[in-house]
Design a protein around this nucleic acid. Sequence first.
DNA 1: GTGAAAGCGCTAACAG
DNA 2: CTGTTAGCGCTTTCAC
Lengths: 346, 346
Amino acid sequence: MGIITIKDIAKALNLSTSTVSRALRGSYEINAETKRLVMEYAERMNYRPNPIALSLKENRSRSIGVIIPEIANNFFSQAINGIESIAYNRGYHVVISQNHESYERELVSTQYLAQRRVDGLLVSLSGESNDLEHFKELQSKGLPIVFFDRVPQDYITHKVTADNFAGAYEGTEHLIQQGYRRIAHLTSPSWLSITYERLEGYKKALQNHGIPIDESYIKYCSHGGMIADEVENAVLELIHHPNRPHAIFSAGDRLTTSCISLIRKEGLRIPDDIAIVGFTNLVSAHLLNPALSAVTQPAYEMGQLATEFLIDLIERPKATIRFESKRLDTRLVIRESSLKSSKNFN
Amino acid sequence: MGIITIKDIAKALNLSTSTVSRALRGSYEINAETKRLVMEYAERMNYRPNPIALSLKENRSRSIGVIIPEIANNFFSQAINGIESIAYNRGYHVVISQNHESYERELVSTQYLAQRRVDGLLVSLSGESNDLEHFKELQSKGLPIVFFDRVPQDYITHKVTADNFAGAYEGTEHLIQQGYRRIAHLTSPSWLSITYERLEGYKKALQNHGIPIDESYIKYCSHGGMIADEVENAVLELIHHPNRPHAIFSAGDRLTTSCISLIRKEGLRIPDDIAIVGFTNLVSAHLLNPALSAVTQPAYEMGQLATEFLIDLIERPKATIRFESKRLDTRLVIRESSLKSSKNFN
DNA sequence: GTGAAAGCGCTAACAG
DNA sequence: CTGTTAGCGCTTTCAC
């Protein structure tokens, strides 16, 4: 016996499909005995409602779509676990889609999920996304969207981010306090929110400590580290800078690992020649050589919060909502890669 | 104007839905002019067929389900990219589900995906799965399933794995050639295929080099590293073993990182006190302290191959198939963590 | 060459 | 309390 439907139950019990349907959902208007009969039979035959039929009928799917740049990134995989923890508790399934930092793929994923009638979207923008029309249009048609991590500037909805400014400030200030003054910043595409906020934190820390800002110390990687050459060029430019920086504050898992890798390939030592603090959630940070100082984001909690926002939006669509932009605190973990070296270079 | 349906097109063009349907799929029996009209209008209105309606009608979804232990694992995230690369090219979407090494969650995910009418399943077993009835039942109902990485023993279908035996043999032999003789093995739950195959490779290498096998050097972590205590106990038992091993051959990303972490916490040096080779795809292996020697699997290719098998199964279901078990070669990358130390301990 | 009708599995408005 | 009917979007006989 294959997959069983309401019809099969109805036939077997000599009832109409509607009676069975009502019985299964425990409708008050069904005779207790009939109910029992239906329930028992359904149980015995291991009946499961067809979610596709339900989706078609109700125009929703009890699932939420997640569109992120890359799964193979500690921040995002942690965030996904946070997302799932809330979603499953509240009866939603999670469908994950990667954009691989491409606008095109973000667009395709978005359309696909929308057609699949996900009840809401959780988005962290690709490195290429400046046009947000596809999201705006869906939202205007009633699809709730919550952004997290990489959020758009002028877009009215809930947003969940880490406190990128404060995190970058703290990371940079730590380097300053260690005695470094020539501090570079290796970062993601300039138009991303995380880039801007971290940059501001970095600049502010320098300013507050009377260190002039040198634009040639700031390197953007417009593909967020997806293209090896790009990072390589950026890092090499820093290394061969006439006034080589003594420390680099780098953003993102991939940027940070590539950066470390290149510095070592060039035969320089960390932190003696160049110190590093990464804005990253790398799980293996403490195992790196040297152990990596890192500003980490509460990825799991960010995923959870974003999901709570989203499901609230889904479940009370009519409520007058005051959209929120939540910032969660980052945490600076100091390890060897940023400790003051004995060398005196200032 | 919201989401547009065939009905809307029919109304606008004064045609019947069936004509529109046929026109859209280019049926030969439709007047060229009508076709053009329909196509143009559909294009202009940005019509997209409702995949849910199609799924209901055709009892399939043009998507494949992937059930893996953990996304936050370099091997699996690389495999997913391989899977997606093939799937998208052949017109399938990919739905990812994690089992978090739990049989229960594997079961739930499987049911869910089956109900969602995925056209096939790509599975790497959870660390708890010894009962495979849920897969067998679905397969007997016609749902193609392909296993990869962690595959069941006696189960007739395509399977894709790395050559775990050869990889483990090579890794262990490398340690032996470096002069290590007391070599321990830290591994996953004993009933998993990967565990067995790697264990055999490890043993065979020892045997071939005349080293007796000491069962107390073999530690299974039945939760595959998901439970910190378990790994900790295993590693501590090795470290405090009356004849402390001089090298550990460890399996899996998480096991390996935990192992390194604990050895260092105990104040031992790698490789001087204990050398390490990991059977792992850790992307940051070369950045660890010390750089980690690793047996790596061709994760991307494994994902691709498994997907090709699966889609072939989906698309020619009637064909008499000779099920294959493909083994792909691993690669040993030697780095500092396994280099012969100057100390002489044998 | 085109339309009417049925059906995929389910729910709900409407009748009894 | 239960059955009939219609409809979600689409494809596909079966008629004309």
